[in-house]
Simulated scan of single mutants.
Amino acid sequence: MGTDRSRSCDDPSLVFYAYKTDSDRQKPFGHQTNLLLDWCRIALELKQPAYVLPCGSVTKKTDEVIAYGYREDRKFVRKKVLWPSFVLRRTIVFPPSLAVRMQREERLFSQYSQLLSLPRTGSDKWSIYRYLSKNPELLPHLPTTLPLRSYADFTAFLLDYHDVYLKPIRGTQGQSILRLRNQQQGVLCESEKQQSLLLPRNDRLLAHIARYIHAQEPKFLLQQTVPMLHSKWGQRIDFRYFLQAIAKDQIQCTAIIARLANQNAITTNLSTGSRAIGLDRLDKHFNVTTWQIIDRSIVKGQNIALQIFKILRQKWPYLAELGIDMGISPDGDIKILEVNPVPGRKMLRQIDADLRIQSLRTVITYVRSLREMIGVPRKGF
């Protein structure tokens, strides 16, 4: 990764806001390095300069920032560029030491740029749940959810629903998730990395749950378990609806991808071993009755996903893309499992490499359409 010491007069217009690591020179942006290289390359092909701006690198509003641009040998080069007009957040996991600086940066971006993604401060699971639950049409599709503030919260919620998930409020790509089920002898606790535990309803259960309780600022939430369809071989299935803006008032569903969990898995995250399958190859995994339920429900799920995008756009008008995960119950009911504000491309790469590239191109053409419509915004000048 080199350095371009010349001063750039180009307005980058678009930056991808991502965490940079110093531990791997070949992959300075971790597992997102190749994705960001592809994105910047496509942007240059479309004559839309784009750069990667590392998290924590901006301390105040300045005329210029140091970002990383694409070089022909598929390397990043440091470059001084003007303050960005559009910012697309690509940060999911980062060191806690950066949290305060990133909050300050997001405030600066909100004031002086246009955000193309949900800000981290407003896109955790609980914030999105509260926002969507205000809509009476969406409320029936939302599983009951509650932030975990006390052991009393946990016991009451489990008593009401018998089968619940405990999840981090902020996304962790399927990590640190528990499934808890009432049994006659106690509470069955399942996770991806540890053996299942049957805990008696005494101090052992309290000690196990206590580590997840944060009274003042909850870090975990409880969610009613959604009954979902299973394959012929007992694998849970859910669906990722990948939505993108193509113009200020136009949204498209770029892809609908099924995720088949491992047989004994409690989540369908790819990071925990699930498999992405395109709809055109899905029917062989299900019996006729189950496939008919899926076939009837797919379009209904797409309409719900589009509605979610439009509702969130009322608050964040330049939103570029979302990943929305939904489950289908055996009776065809659809539940919204999660809204992913920073959708990855691993699933697209697994089912259709060309579609992955097209999804990157869609973001760039969307930014170009915004620039033509509203000009290059320079808020605060």
Rank of each mutant, 00 (worst) to 15 (best):
R179L: 04
Q292D: 15
V226I: 14
T272K: 15
V288T: 14
G69M: 02
H141M: 09
P12Y: 01
D24G: 12
H230G: 09
L180Y: 02
Q175P: 02
Q216Y: 01
R104D: 05
C253K: 06
R181S: 13
V100P: 06
Y112F: 14
S23P: 07
F239I: 02
S8V: 00
L197F: 07
S231E: 10
H214T: 00
R5A: 08
K79H: 01
A261K: 04
T225R: 15
I374S: 15
Q184L: 13
D153K: 01
I364F: 12
W291S: 13
N135S: 12
E190M: 12
S57W: 00
A265Q: 10
T254Y: 07
T144Q: 15
L158D: 03
A43T: 01
F109I: 03
Y70S: 07
V81I: 02
I66G: 09
K134Y: 05
V363Q: 11
I293W: 14
A276V: 01
Y112M: 10
T365L: 13
A258F: 04
A261S: 11
T33K: 09
H214A: 03
G273S: 10
F86R: 05
F286R: 09
K60D: 09
F239P: 06
Y161K: 07
K167W: 03
D163V: 03
F157W: 03
L348K: 06
E372N: 11
L198T: 02
Q183Y: 09
P317E: 05
L306D: 02
P377F: 08
A152L: 07
I251T: 08
E338L: 08
I213P: 08
L138K: 06
I293H: 15
P84W: 02
K219Q: 11
S57V: 00
T290V: 15
R236V: 03
L282A: 10
M326F: 12
S274G: 12
M347D: 13
R90E: 11
I256R: 12
S359I: 00
M1E: 07
S191G: 10
L348N: 06
R345E: 05
V164W: 05
G30W: 03
F16M: 09
V15W: 04
F309I: 00
R349Q: 13
T59Q: 14
S271M: 08
Q103H: 07
H162M: 06
S6A: 10
R25P: 14
L180W: 01
L166A: 05
T172W: 08
L139H: 12
L132M: 11
P119G: 07
L270H: 05
N135H: 06
